[in-house]
């Protein structure tokens, strides 16, 4: 009995290793361009820095994407949509945050409409520093993410599932309620 469990565990581990190779080398990103850091992405994507040689590419919907890029400050309204998008993505999913606004609020530290710390609401795998981060920094951040996926360190999505109550409590504390009901939302 124990033997079969061990075997299954070994198979699962082997499969995990293989799939991590594929996941690390094929990252599709969902660019939900929240703030000004998004302007650095076209450079990183096109011929100057060429993101595609790392196997990265843009995708149209959260369902297809692997990594969610938070490019800059998040107002409450945007945070709500980001949570929708993040929860729609299929696991494993990663989250990369750009700039100081996601770290501690940045220049919007005293704004009534902009949150201060994104890691209170969603688990973040990689922070990219700079206001705005240069394309070199962006590429470096993506390289870090690839390394983390290979080393099994990019498990923010597992953290999110395990500590969902804590995240949900923070989200509700900031947003009031998660699903908004008004005339623009059925």
């Amino acid at each position: 009995m124990d033997n079969t469990v061990e075997k299954q565990e070994n198979i699962r581990k082997g499969w995990d290793g293989i799939s991590r190779f594929f996941r690390a080398n094929s990252i599709w990103m969902l660019m939900y361009c929240t703030g000004c850091c998004a302007i650095e992405l076209p450079q990183a994507m096109t011929s100057r820095y060429d993101m595609e040689r790392l196997g990265m590419g843009p995708m149209a919907t959260p369902r297809q994407a692997d990594v969610l890029l938070i490019t800059g400050y998040l107002s409450l309204k945007t945070l709500r949509r980001i949570i929708y998008a993040y929860e729609q993505m299929s696991t494993p999913k990663y989250l990369v945050a750009f700039g100081p606004c996601t770290l501690n609020g940045g220049i919007y530290y005293d704004s009534h409409a902009v949150i201060n710390r994104l890691d209170q609401y969603l688990p973040i795998d990689v922070y990219i520093a700079g206001c705005m981060p240069k394309p070199e920094a962006v590429m470096n951040g993506f390289n870090d993410l690839i390394g983390m996926i290979k080393r099994k360190e990019a498990n923010g999505w597992k953290k999110y599932e395990q500590n969902k109550d804590w995240y949900r409590k923070n989200q509700i504390q900031a947003l009031g309620e998660l699903r908004i009901k008004d005339e623009f939302h059925e």
């Binding site: 499969w15 293989i18 799939s19 594929f22 996941r23 080398n25 094929s26 599709w28 096109t46 011929s47 060429d50 595609e52 040689r53 196997g55 692997d66």
Partner: peptide, 18 residues
Amino acid sequence: RIGPKWYQQFRDIFKALS
């Protein structure tokens, strides 16, 4: 651009399946 590896499409497909 430099472009991806020639087997990038395999990686994409198997990643999606995983």
